[in-house]
């Protein structure tokens, strides 16, 4: 049991944090891609398709980067922080677009 717990903590822990960091970053990336391209005049569905086509390549890159990096704290701060910042920026852009009657 202790082996299983130690495996979960030491080995699966970094996988889970890299997965969640990658997910959060990609969420922000998709949201910001959609809102920024709609702001630039793209159709909503074109923007949506473009963002989702790029989502998994971005997710994979960030996941590998977080998992394999030696500077764990820095990379995780960039990924988690970047995800939150992009999400916040997209929410702000959305409110701007709605206010303009988009």
């Amino acid at each position: 049991m202790s082996t299983l717990l130690s495996f979960t903590r030491q080995s699966l822990g970094p996988v889970v944090t890299a997965f969640l960091g990658g997910y959060l970053f990609t969420w922000g990336f998709v949201a910001l891609t959609v809102t920024s391209t709609v702001t630039l005049g793209w159709g909503f569905h074109t923007a949506e398709h473009t963002a989702f086509l790029l989502a998994f390549p971005v997710f994979l890159l960030v996941f590998f980067w977080l998992f394999l990096s030696r500077k764990t704290l820095l990379t995780h701060a960039v990924a988690y922080g970047g995800g939150v910042l992009m999400t916040a920026a997209s929410v702000w852009l959305q409110s701007m677009l709605l206010a303009q009657g988009a």
Binding site: V34, T35, F44, E48, S90, Q94, L97
Partner: peptide, 16 residues
């Protein structure tokens, strides 16, 4: 990753 059906739903609906 239901971004456009949750967080961006207001924009999605308006565009639709």
């Amino acid at each position: 990753m239901p971004v456009t059906n949750t967080m961006l739903e207001p924009l999605h609906s308006a565009q639709q």
